[in-house]
């Protein structure tokens, strides 16, 4: 049986996610300039700076995973400004419901949190797979994670599967026509461009794989 994933690792995940988004701000802006209104990079950067600030203050983010997620959700919905705020906010708000008062979760519980988070995003954005949105990276990742758990893989292997599924999903958005959000106004002209929201969602999964799959690293840092 794999070891539980700890609150410290969840904090590390969010910190890595914030770092990753900020490193890739120019790419996110460029992707959004092609099919949107070029604000996704700046919006996410503004939100992630605030997330990092919050993470510096342990009292502001609570002593359990549910409180941590709720705090991050509120930060994102009040600072991002664009659709990504309520959408990532919905992910963390829904995922938080499963882990109130908990400071460590099993891999099975993690998969359930991801499923709840995905459902939150789907419900808020009313998007399905293949509509060129965050869902195209998130849903394959969640499905891969669930399948890996069913196979009995450990956290590192399971999250690597999720990461690869998210990467494929993100890259696949370039082939899709947008039917949600600002990009949908472009119709067929949205084809050929990778979706910025799916790219941010990929960073969420990539940072999860780095922080939640490898306990030793998380403890050292």
């Amino acid at each position: 049986m794999s070891q539980d994933i700890t609150l410290a690792q969840f904090r590390r995940w969010l910190s890595l996610f914030a770092e990753q988004v900020q490193e890739q701000v120019d790419l996110l802006t460029e992707l959004d300039a092609a099919i949107g209104d070029a604000d996704h990079g700046a919006n996410m950067q503004r939100g992630m700076r605030k997330v990092q600030e919050r993470l510096q203050d342990p009292t502001a983010t609570g002593g359990d995973i549910g409180s941590l997620f709720r705090s991050i959700a509120m930060t994102l919905i009040s600072t991002v400004g664009g659709a990504a705020g309520p959408l990532f906010g919905a992910f963390f708000l829904r995922a938080a419901k499963d882990v109130d008062g908990t400071d460590a979760v099993s891999l099975e519980q993690l998969a359930a949190m991801f499923r709840s988070g995905l459902e939150g995003v789907q419900q808020r954005g009313k998007a399905q797979i293949e509509e060129k949105t965050m869902i195209d990276a998130l849903q394959p990742a969640v499905e891969a994670l669930e399948a890996a758990v069913a196979e009995g893989l450990d956290a590192a292997a399971a999250l690597d599967r999720a990461l690869e599924a998210a990467r494929r999903g993100m890259l696949h958005t370039a082939e899709l026509q947008a039917s949600k959000g600002r990009a949908s106004y472009l119709g067929p002209r949205s084809i050929g461009h990778q979706d910025p929201g799916a790219t941010s969602a990929f960073y969420l999964i990539q940072s999860a794989a780095a922080a939640l799959g490898r306990q030793a690293q998380a403890e050292e840092s």
């Binding site: 604000d39 503004r46 700076r49 605030k50 919905i77 009040s78 991002v80 664009g82 705020g85």
Partner: peptide, 14 residues
Amino acid sequence: DENGQRQIGTDATA
């Protein structure tokens, strides 16, 4: 924003 400047966007908590 963090500099106290008004930007285009929406805030659910507001």
